[in-house]
Amino acid sequence: MKSLLPILTVLLAIVALWYAAAVKLNSAWTYDQAVRAGTEVSLSALVKDTLAQERPVLPAPHQVAVGLWDGVFGQAMTSKRSLVYHGWVTLSATLLGFAIGTALGIALAIGIVHNRAMDMSVMPWAIASQTIPILAIAPMIIVVMNSLGLTGLIPKSIISAYLSFFPVVVGMVKGLRSPDAMQLDLLRTYNASARDVLLKLRLPASLPYLFASLKVGVAASLVGAIVGELPTGAVAGLGARLLSGSYYGQTVQIWAALFAAAIVAAGLVMLIGAAERATLARMGLVR
């Protein structure tokens, strides 16, 4: 907890900067109004007005907090205005896609480790695909699935699965190969089958790598689900809230949706982090 004070200081500095920027960026509107009304604006009135505008250029932190609070607790959970509802729409697509992508990724990694031809064929493409902005195909997948009659959860989770797939493959291949020659030789002296080597040595040894890529994958999944909500035209989900906010100039709504997405992402990464600590502690791998 030695770093708690520095973190709090940095966060405070960010909030203070944010307030200053909000006053600065929103002042144009206030001055404009004052000129039209033929009045002068004092500094205190300026600060008061810039932090309480309805459609500010940059909403002040407390406005975002109010928007977030109102979206989460101020509405019935099933209401179209509730961030819980939209967050759940996005989260369910994320989780489904993440589960599919992870399962397929682990399966392919096991295949790659056991089959040289598969390794040499697939691995260069899996690595190269990490340098490609795959997210660009998200809108197309949505629309094509739509024309095939698939809407809602499935197309979004396909994008999420696709985005979390490659980090898991690359990380797992590394992890499954992490046991050194000495350990593999030991199992060979035991006359262990390939299946035993996999279950008793390779899979346990790969867990630290798996968790590292799961963290990357789940963050990518969430981004995929959010971007997947854009092309259908703001129906439901956090991405839809972002889009409709930008259509109607509702900046507070955008920021509230953005923070909701950040909270979901942080929660998911923390969950995986907790699972990682618990698992590795039981295996005696914690440093």
Partner: peptide, 15 residues
């Protein structure tokens, strides 16, 4: 670094 930062896109487009 783990957050969906792409989400700030609509804000930046506004600004």
């Amino acid at each position: 670094a783990a957050l969906p930062i792409v989400g700030i896109a609509p804000i930046m487009v506004m600004w």
